[in-house]
């Protein structure tokens, strides 16, 4: 699976959250582009990489209940009517659209009665409408609230949650989470220094056993339920 991450930020180098996310990118399967970093938008090139991606991510800080102006310019320039739906070919159909959005306000602000008075889903409705128009699958939003206040354990968790949002199969079920970790494990174990390899392999084998046990239990339960239906 190929994921295209389009980052919109007017001052990327000054953003600790965006730098953190860049450092957290998975090592394979992801193409990363900074929209405002382009000298001029090459429409053909931008459209070509959209066609190649299976999952497209818009990543930005929330400015006045919207993405930065750079993303809107990109949309208005690259997403021409003919490209998105005009010729009835829908080249983006079936692709997933995900949003990684950072906010300066805490999670509880984004609800009715909260400090902002509206949900992030409501804020991002125009992008969801775009996904709908292009016949794309809208992924649940990946919000990062008040990055500056995150403690180390939360940042550690964020690294992997972000990687999974970019590359893990959706929905984010336990089964799909297990599959993602199972895919990563051999590479992570191989990457360990020689003296840690044995522990890594042991951990991986217990993880696999747990996974098999869960599969068996799920099957058994399905069988019992089937008999109950009879």
């Amino acid at each position: 699976m190929t994921t295209l991450v389009l980052v919109s930020h007017p001052q990327l180098a000054d953003s600790t959250s965006q730098q953190f996310l860049k450092e957290s990118l998975p090592s394979t399967g992801v193409k990363w582009e900074h929209i405002e970093g382009q000298q001029a938008l090459d429409v053909d090139q931008e459209q070509a990489q959209l066609r190649q991606a299976d999952r497209i991510i818009f990543q930005f800080p929330l400015y006045w209940y919207a993405a930065p102006a750079g993303l809107k310019t990109w949309e208005d320039t690259v997403l021409t009517r003919t490209f998105v739906y005009g010729d009835h070919r829908y080249p983006l159909a079936g692709k997933e659209l995900g949003i990684v959005v950072t906010t300066g306000m805490p999670q509880q602000a984004f609800q009715r009665g909260g400090a902002e008075g509206l949900t992030l889903d409501a804020v991002l409705a125009p992008l969801a409408a775009l996904a709908h128009r292009a016949r794309m699958t809208w992924l649940p939003v990946f919000p990062i609230y008040q990055f500056g206040y995150l403690e180390e354990p939360e940042k550690l968790q964020l690294v992997i949650d972000y990687q999974r949002y970019l590359t893990q199969r959706q929905p984010d079920s336990l089964a799909n989470r297990q599959d993602w970790f199972a895919q990563q494990l051999p590479g992570m174990v191989a990457h360990l220094p020689a003296e840690q390899q044995a522990t890594g392999k042991l951990i991986a084998s217990v993880f696999d056993q747990n996974r098999e046990q869960l599969d068996q239990l799920t099957d058994t339960l399905a069988m019992i339920k089937e008999q109950e239906d009879d």
Partner: peptide, 17 residues
Amino acid sequence: FTERAFWLALKKVTAEQ
């Protein structure tokens, strides 16, 4: 940091399993 993050996240998934 990212490698430490991976193993700690795996721990969480094993607890979930």
